[in-house]
Design a protein around this nucleic acid. Structure first.
Lengths: 342, 342
DNA sequence: GCTTGCAATGACAACGCTATCATTGCAGTG
DNA sequence: CACTGCAATGATAGCGTTGTCATTGCAAGC
């Protein structure tokens, strides 16, 4: 006699395909086919089965389904932070791209910690996702290896400055930094300040800074002052650091910020302190957030399109679910937004 | 002879427990035990197995694991939007609460559409989550029934104004609206305006509005003007609607906003138009966003703690994974933040 | 030497579904 | 009227784990 496990006893008497099949007087296969809209089914049968489904309140078990079909329909998403608004924006793009498919995104946050990223990626891969979308191209060796060996599509989004495992979708942050410097030099600014955050943790902010400094020094200009804060970006830090930098380097004509959050904080400081922008002090951000355009004077910045990055990242994978032989890069670009602060 | 399916052929030769077991010369059970840190294992065996795991690059398949153990370790999260910053804030709290457990959140977005919510909930439940955390208590009947019948813990967060299926964590938005009105009446304001958004879609904004109006009319005061915009909240809409309302109802002393985003937009309009705040026009928001505190003058508002709501929502479920017999409500409260704009 | 007791491991049937192949029944054909 | 073709359905072996129970081996106790 077969051993009977009593696992079901503690479960809330789950309804299974077999229950539905029994009630509708058909086989499990038929129920399965109907639930998935797959294969030929007589109308009468479909109606009868759907009635049984409703009567029993049957909800298919995707875990079992995924195991049986060897296809989880999950898409893993890895981002460094939820408090920096740009990542929720990317997530919106990802959701938009996923809408209409029956794929589910599973989101994990790393807090800009590469070791945590490694753990998170390992856990995600355990769910056998159909693809992984991950922010940035800087990972531990182990993470990179896991992503590579998974064989699934790996879309590294936000930046294109480093060679990706599979495909990168985003923009060159080094280039964005360089364009910022050239733009401001062309407008005649010569005395520069920089206000940033988390120099060691946010790789992309660092790349913009590096690109910016490179062009400055090529032009024989040196940064007259900089203020870097730790941890996450915030308007408050931008405000405080601006006050600080201004006190230490009063001759600075223009401050470049890690991003718009910080720059908005800078503008708030100027508004409070009666500093005229851009006459007394010019400000330049990065990202092109909505709020920048609604300020009393529009913030001069560089626009990157995060929603679009997320959407494109999904599209890449949907269009070609099989990883190509060679890595590729999709540049979503950026553009200078003139604004009125620099 | 047993039928042999060739499914494996098209798969990227997945490594399974059996592969590891064979290489390490132990049984599948032993490998499973070691991977889960469960049960007694001799040190030598553990070392040998872990070597095999590394050598093969074995990644456990959680789909199979979840099916076998009848426990998915997933927590479903349903939110209406990612573009309203308050929801990413709640997600941060949820992540914080989940940190250290081996549970994964799966996030779905409804775009404030109850029919979409129904679809989303159905799809989430198919993953056999250990709990569902869902924003708000307003659902279709079908959604409510599914949540109820799932038998798992259902935490409805953000609001406590309606009776929950299982447990609600948040604050009373009707009360928040009432407190706003009382606070402003107490400060002597009598000529009120209201600027809001998505009156029909954002139930909580609507409840605050209703609470606010109730108190006003009890005090014999009527709203002199209101401007409601469609769709999502934004700083830009707040700015535009403020200009509009100001033109239509110039006598208004104080404008109450659906939330801080809109109020910040209002302040920006005032700064641009040379309207003195609060002398010429007072402004009052809702949420207590960080940015409100960093403005040239701090925004008067009501603080709700979204991070805390998310964290508490998770804790409720972690502390008591079994649904209690009777629904309950956890009030995380709110407080008036005086600010300098009203 | 022969039990006991327990640490350590093994065997194997679920878990709920789907892919594959097999079968049925019936209309149309010659 | 047997024969073909196809729409519709059924039977069943996995999918890769884990829970349960069974077994092994060895030290301690008498």
């Amino acid at each position: 006699m077969a051993k009977q496990r009593q696992r079901l006893s503690d479960r809330k008497s789950k309804v299974t395909v077999s229950d539905v099949a029994r009630l509708a007087q058909v086989s499990d296969s038929t129920v399965s086919r109907i639930m998935r809209n797959h294969g030929l089914i007589a109308d009468a049968t479909r109606v009868r089965v759907m009635e049984a489904v409703r009567a029993l309140g049957y909800v298919p078990n995707r875990i079992a389904g995924s195991l049986a079909s060897l296809d989880s329909q999950l898409v893993g998403v890895v981002i460094p932070s939820l408090s920096n608004i740009v990542f929720p924006e990317v997530l919106q793009g990802i959701n938009a791209g996923l809408a209409g498919t029956n794929r589910q995104s599973v989101i994990s946050v790393t807090d800009y910690d590469l070791d945590k990223e490694e753990v998170v990626v390992r856990n995600l891969l355990a769910w056998q996702p159909a693809a992984v979308l991950i922010a940035g191209s800087t990972h531990t060796d182990a993470t990179r290896r896991m992503l590579d060996q998974s064989g699934i599509r790996i879309v590294e989004f936000m930046e294109t400055d480093y060679p990706p495992v599979d495909v990168a979708v985003g923009l060159s942050h080094v280039a964005a930094g360089m364009v910022t410097a050239r733009h401001l030099l062309a407008r005649g600014y010569r005395r520069f300040g920089y206000v940033g955050y988390g120099g060691t943790i946010d790789v992309r902010a660092r790349m913009r800074y590096d690109g910016f400094c490179t062009v400055l020094s090529e032009a024989g200009v040196t940064l007259e002052g900089e203020a870097m804060s730790d941890g996450q970006t915030s308007v408050g830090k931008g405000r405080a650091q601006t006050a600080d930098l201004r006190a230490r380097a009063p001759g600075v004509e223009v401050i470049v910020y890690s991003n718009d959050d910080m720059a908005v904080g800078g503008l708030f400081h100027c508004l409070s302190a009666g500093i005229r922008v851009p006459e007394d002090l010019a400000l330049f951000g990065f990202n092109g957030l909505d709020i920048g355009r609604e300020l009393p004077q529009p913030l001069s910045t560089i626009r990157s399109n995060r929603f679009n990055i997320g959407k494109r990242a999904v599209e890449v994978f949907l269009q070609d679910p099989i990883r190509p032989d060679r890595p590729s890069i999709i540049d979503t670009g950026f553009e200078v937004f003139e604004g009125a602060t620099a």
